[in-house]
């Protein structure tokens, strides 16, 4: 990049525009198979989460979205028969979410695979750099976007690590 501050700023702006362009492309590619990006995110979450974490509350917390938004997403997936809801056998108050076989099969054509493929095409020695840069940008973006807030739900919790 140029040493001239004005030119440097313009270059940074161009980098930001590049991110904007490819993020829009990735986003638009996520409207496939009758799903939207949030629904694909939910399928990925359920595919990875351990059984105890496969609840609406944990999904909302994981993605830092409202319970109402989480509920809309999961309800749509249940209607599309990609997810099932059932009572936890150990605690009947908890509704567990699970992928159906159809939901698991659909993840084979996850649109995120396109971005993974683009990253894979980078020279091997640039993979770590891509991770570092993406991580740093993510942290900066979220530091600017997300407000600190308190969780109004108070749940009894005897787990380790509560501050």
């Amino acid at each position: 990049m140029s040493a001239d501050p004005g030119h440097k700023e313009a270059s940074l702006r161009a980098v930001a525009e590049l991110f904007d362009h490819f993020m829009r492309a990735i986003y638009s590619q996520s409207f496939v198979e009758g799903l939207n990006p949030a629904q694909w995110g939910a399928l990925r979450f359920l595919n990875r989460a351990n059984p105890r974490s496969r609840t609406l509350t944990e999904f909302a917390r994981f993605h830092m979205v409202s319970k109402s938004a989480a509920s809309d997403t999961m309800s749509a997936l249940v209607r599309k028969q990609l997810v099932t809801k059932s009572r936890d056998p150990e605690d009947g108050r908890i509704m567990r979410l699970d992928l159906t076989q159809r939901g698991r099969d659909l993840l084979a054509i996850d649109p995120l695979n396109n971005l993974v493929a683009a990253l894979r095409r980078l020279p091997q020695e640039q993979h770590g750099l891509a991770a570092d840069i993406a991580g740093a940008i993510a942290r900066n973006v979220f530091a600017g976007l997300t407000e600190e807030g308190s969780d109004s739900e108070s749940e009894p919790d005897s787990r380790l690590g509560r501050r």
Partner: peptide, 19 residues
């Protein structure tokens, strides 16, 4: 991970796994 106050856990997870 404690998740970070400003970071969704989804992003923290991606950060640790990318590393």
């Amino acid at each position: 991970s404690g998740g970070g106050r400003n970071l969704p856990a989804a992003v923290s997870l991606a950060l640790t796994e990318a590393a």
